[in-house]
Design a protein around this nucleic acid. Structure first.
Lengths: 323, 323
DNA sequence: AATCAAATTGGAAACGTTTACAATCCAAAT
DNA sequence: ATTTGGATTGTAAACGTTTCCAATTTGATT
């Protein structure tokens, strides 16, 4: 099994019968290339499976640095952000850009200059956001922030689908284990939950929404507590896989079978956490790619806009017809 | 505040009055440079705070790829491995090496060739280890594996210090919340725990060691369960910060105050998890640097050896004199 | 058919390293 | 005083891109 040499821009140029300059122009979607030539080059690129060397591109000075900023406290310790961060780094490199060592001071502000910043875990009225705006630095936010560049999963739709799935299975008493209400995504998921309930003529009850603080353990404690206090439900929609796992554990300890007695739906579809769990899948890789795309637009000074990344329910083993 | 240009090898060469070739030879510790010249170059390097560009080095073909392999299932989802992985990537770049995209097939074996591999989360008789040995591929393991290159925190000593700390505070009934017993680190931590007990003349009781499965939730459930079943203790040594957090929560739910009624010690000192927690600090950055150092030795075909990275108890707010 | 401008393309330098090879230096041996 | 040979140092190509500038082609206009 001989090691296949990776093709370079020179190989492409030779095969296509043009110069490297032309190939480069095609790759970077620059104007001034004859349409036919463009097509021919692209075909060779395709055929060879050529990918530009990020290292060489970087050396040539073209490399642009993007900063990835995590809210202090969010860090990379949660599975969701860990995964998103990885995908982001990957997407950035694929675009021929570079991730700046995103050192932050203790206020969460960047210490090194970058062309644009992708900010994760920001909340409304985050002082970091104001800071970026005041400094006129290009940035992209994860979450809905009208007036800025933003990318967000379709939280309302996801929650709606999850809840509707439970309703279709005949459930009417549906507990919603939410995260911190400060977080916008949580509020949207509640919206989706209420929308589905309404559609099925089920009254919304405030005590059916509890705060699981985004943690497996807290979800466990809260679910167990409310059940022991007498609250009853035949299904649970948890706003994250982690909280869904805690929920399942709590029910188990209470002697309740999932999904026979109670159905459970999660959110995120994180690998290794969601095995066997009915949940709402986020395409994290797509979210990452979108963030990078908007960051590039932000650099060019384009008008800010936002993108909703679609989401999809995956039915697995924790939901069943109401017994 | 003008942006300071980063110095290149050319700047160093000019300032030192030599050619870039000579500077490169000095930097790479090659022979054939006059001692005086060597010193002169090093002084300029020092003065300018010059660091070779990893990108340029990479392009020139000198870059060597290191693979970082995580056991399937370990993934980067736990805070400890997330942090370690980050530190490893950082350490690798600092050494002028490169991290190969460590894609693995579904048996956890590398798909891309690298000069050496750093394997995380391997267990005894891991088929991946056998595979590497058979192929005569250089590798470094995290954990104690005589006969191979290995790096491990001083688990015995850490557990010993943690337990002794509790004993010194007057505790005699000390519960040990351990991880999965298959994991070698857990067995070592039990050893350290027993060593301290013995030194203080306290009998080891098998039912005082429980399996928290390395998870906050499982630790919570187990601790709560054994207490409800009547087991009593005045202190807990948890084999990870995550389990320590679960332990504290369980005690709280049982109406037991920490540290007034029961003291708790963790292990790892992970940022954002160990705030306020008395725990055993691992120098994860040092572990990462050591892994890379051994990997370089492994590449040169040196004789395998292992390194213990020291560990230190940090006393914070979850331990107190026995009431 | 000749001219011109625009469109397209090629050529080469530059980015910061490493390294093989050539050139120089120096001291010792003749 | 030469020669020799080892030690030291300099030189330049190579790595894979991007991009500026010059060269060529094309097509329209006269």
């Amino acid at each position: 099994m001989a090691v296949k040499e990776v093709p370079t821009i020179h190989d492409v140029a030779t095969l296509a019968g043009v110069s490297t300059g032309t190939v480069s122009r095609v790759l970077n979607k620059r104007p001034g290339v004859h349409p036919e030539t463009r097509v021919r080059v692209q075909e060779v690129v395709e055929r060879l499976g050529y990918t530009p060397s990020a290292v060489a591109r970087e050396l040539s000075g073209k490399g642009e640095a993007l900063g990835i900023l995590m809210a202090p406290g969010t860090r990379r310790l949660t599975p969701y952000f860990t995964l998103l961060y990885e995908m982001l780094v990957d997407a950035v490199w694929r675009e021929g850009l570079r991730v700046e060592e995103t050192l932050v001071d203790n206020a969460g502000l960047p210490l090194l200059p970058a062309k644009a910043y992708i900010m994760l875990g920001a909340h409304d009225h985050d002082h970091r956001v104001e800071h970026m705006e005041r400094r006129k630095l290009p940035f992209v936010l994860l979450g809905v922030y009208p007036g800025a560049f933003w990318v967000a999963p379709d939280d309302i739709e996801g929650a709606y689908q999850a809840t509707r799935h439970l309703l279709e299975l005949g459930h009417r008493k549906i507990l919603h284990v939410s995260g911190r209400p400060e977080r916008q995504a949580e509020r949207e998921r509640i919206k989706g939950y209420r929308k589905a309930l309404k559609e099925y003529g089920v009254n919304f009850e405030a005590n059916m929404v509890i705060d699981g603080e985004f943690s497996t353990l807290q979800a466990y404690r809260k679910v167990r507590k409310v059940w022991e206090e007498g609250l009853r439900f035949s299904a649970v929609f948890a706003a994250s896989d982690e909280m869904a796992v805690g929920t399942v554990a709590a029910l188990e300890d209470l002697g309740i079978q999932v999904p026979k007695d109670v159905s459970v739906v999660g959110f995120d579809d994180l690998p290794e956490l969601s095995t066997g769990l009915t949940t709402v899948r986020q395409d994290i890789a797509e979210i990452a790619r979108t963030c990078v795309r908007l960051a590039k637009d932000a650099i060019t000074g384009a008008k800010p806009y936002g993108v909703r990344v679609p989401v999809q329910l995956v039915v697995r083993g924790t939901t069943a017809l109401r017994g």
